[in-house]
Design a protein around this nucleic acid. Structure first.
Lengths: 108, 108
DNA sequence: ACAACTCATAACCAAATGGTGATGATTCCG
DNA sequence: CGGAATCATCACCATTTGGTTATGAGTTGT
C-alpha cells in the first residue's frame, strides 16, 4: 500500500468540497459519480475533477461497472498526514510517547 | 485555548513553504521574521504573508520585542486536524482504540 | 540626529485553482 | 435500433494564491 506524497494529501484535503466528498465516501461507503454529484452541490465535471485530485493523493479508488464509476475512500492514504502530525505536534506526540512507554514494558 | 476552524488549519498547511516555516518553528523554537526569511528562501514580505495565514489558523503566535517580531509555533492548534483525522481514518482509529483499551485496562 | 535595521503593508503580476457548459465515448433499456 | 444515462475531458472564465518590488512606520546603535 504505497502512499502518495504528503504534499498531495495536504493539498487534496485543503479544499472543503473535496474534504466533504472524502467524508461522504468514508461514512456512506462506495458511491457513483452521479450520487456524489447530487451530494456535493456542484456540477458533475467539478466532481470528476475533485475525484481526480483525490485519486492522485491515493485517497480514493475507483471501480468501473458498466456506465457507472464507483468511488470508495482509502483512509490508509491519510498515513502521510498522520505521520506528519505525530512528528510535529508535541501535543499529539505526548499521547504516543505514553503508548510507546507502555508497550516497551514500563521502564522507570 | 480556542481553536481556529479546521478549514483555516487545512488551508494553512497545504502550502509547502508555510509547512516548512511551521516545522522550523516547531523544531528550533522561537524565531524572528529575519531568521525565518533566510531560512525560507523567499522574500521577507512573502514570509510575513505566510505568517499572517498561519496566525489566522492560530498555528503561530507572535511577540514584539523592539523592532523584531518573534514567532513561535502553537502545536495545539493542530487539534482540529488531529480530530478530523481520528474521525475519518479507520486505520488511525484502530491504533487509538488500542491505546484507549490499554489505558483503560490498566486503570484499576 | 541620523543611518541602518526590522517588519508589515501596498501595489502589482503570473500561475494555479475551482467552477462552468459543451462534447463525446460508453453503456443500458424499451 | 435508438434514446437516455453516466462520466471524463475539453475549452473557457473569474478568483485566489504565492510571489515580487517599493514604501513607510517604528527601533536601535553610533
Amino acid at each position: 500500500m504505497k502512499s502518495a506524497s504528503p504534499q498531495h494529501v495536504f493539498r487534496a484535503l485543503a479544499d472543503p468540497t473535496r474534504r466533504a466528498i472524502f467524508e461522504e465516501l468514508t461514512r456512506q461507503g462506495e458511491q457513483t459519480v452521479h450520487a456524489l454529484t447530487s451530494f456535493a452541490g456542484v456540477s458533475q465535471p467539478a466532481v470528476s475533477k475533485h475525484l481526480t485530485v483525490l485519486k492522485k493523493a491515493r485517497l480514493v479508488r475507483h471501480r468501473r461497472a458498466g456506465r457507472e464509476t464507483h468511488y470508495r475512500a482509502q483512509p490508509e492514504a491519510l498515513a502521510p498526514m498522520a505521520d506528519w502530525l505525530r512528528a510535529y505536534s508535541t501535543f499529539w506526540r505526548e499521547r504516543f510517547d505514553r503508548l510507546e512507554a507502555l508497550l516497551d514494558g514500563m521502564e522507570p
